[in-house]
């Protein structure tokens, strides 16, 4: 971003080389992150609301224990961390729909920024906010008295965070599905239903049998099981792993296909 030494009337021509990495730039990413952190709505739904949920639904269960003696509050906290992360990553990915509706995507096509670099920026932003969401939820839990071994904090946190990649892809999928300015108002309730089936608000085991069967096929189920596995010590079922991988593929491939359709020149 250095200035050339003279204007066009002078001797030097502007530097006409292509940008490195298709225009992907840490500077742009920084502005993107600042933008996300300024969005009150996003912050309310990803950082504040899950924390408040924990205080309302988790804390009253203080003193109760799981089968292995670990606190129920930790179970609730980890579940809500998964929820916070999935809402965070979905909202960043889904913002693509808003930017397409506003015409920003079209504006970007007048710059050297490659579409893949744009998506990379969105993914990194999504995962950054996802990480922040997990950390904030865990902080709320820790301050409120949740105590589990260090490896549980670490592994459950990592699983919640990495699992939310599925929802970053889901957000991009929705984002490229249809341009809409208020996309999160539409998919917010969808996420809540998926979280319910994924056992994030109540354990899947308390649902009626039929719903339990259905739940194992829904996209949050796998990441919920994986994130809680370090806590419950139940081990990781094949069904949960397959669930996570399949949904990651479905949303990832779906987003990629819609992305290609969107960037094709007609």
């Amino acid at each position: 971003m250095t200035a050339s030494t003279s204007t066009r009337t002078g001797v030097t021509e502007p530097d006409r080389r292509l940008p490195a990495l298709g225009g992907f730039a840490p500077g742009a990413l920084r502005i993107e992150l600042r933008r996300v952190l300024r969005n009150r709505r996003t912050l309310a739904f990803t950082l504040i609301m899950p924390g408040v949920f924990f205080l309302i639904f988790g804390l009253p269960q203080g003193g109760q224990s799981l089968d292995n003696g670990r606190p129920v509050t930790a179970y609730v906290m980890i579940s809500l961390a998964v929820y916070a992360a999935m809402v965070a990553t979905t909202s960043v990915g889904g913002a693509v729909a808003t930017e397409r509706a506003l015409g920003w995507s079209r504006q970007l096509r007048l710059t050297p920024l490659r579409p893949a670099a744009y998506v990379a920026t969105k993914l990194i932003t999504a995962m950054s906010l996802g990480l922040l969401a997990v950390v904030v939820e865990f902080l709320v839990g820790a301050v409120a008295g949740v105590r589990v071994p260090a490896y549980v904090w670490l592994l459950s946190g990592l699983a919640a965070w990495i699992g939310s990649l599925v929802f970053a892809a889901f957000g991009l999928f929705i984002g490229y599905l249809a341009p809409a300015e208020n996309v999160m108002q539409i998919i917010g309730p969808v996420l809540a239903v998926l979280a319910m089936f994924g056992g994030l608000f109540v354990p899947v085991e308390v649902l009626p049998d039929v719903l339990q069967q259905v739940a194992t096929f829904t996209p949050v189920y796998g990441m919920g099981v994986l994130a809680r596995a370090p806590l419950t010590g139940d081990g990781v079922s094949m069904a949960a792993v397959v669930n996570l991988v399949v949904w990651a593929l479905v949303f990832g491939v779906g987003a990629a296909r819609l992305f290609r359709r969107d960037t094709a020149r007609v």
Binding site: S4, L18, G23, A25, L102, W104, Q107, L108, P112
Partner: peptide, 25 residues
Amino acid sequence: LQTGGLLKDLTVGETVEMTAHFYRH
């Protein structure tokens, strides 16, 4: 362009700064 949109939540200066990052120079 008529259809080129802008991000409503960025400032004028940030919009310029962000776009500048996409270029080599």
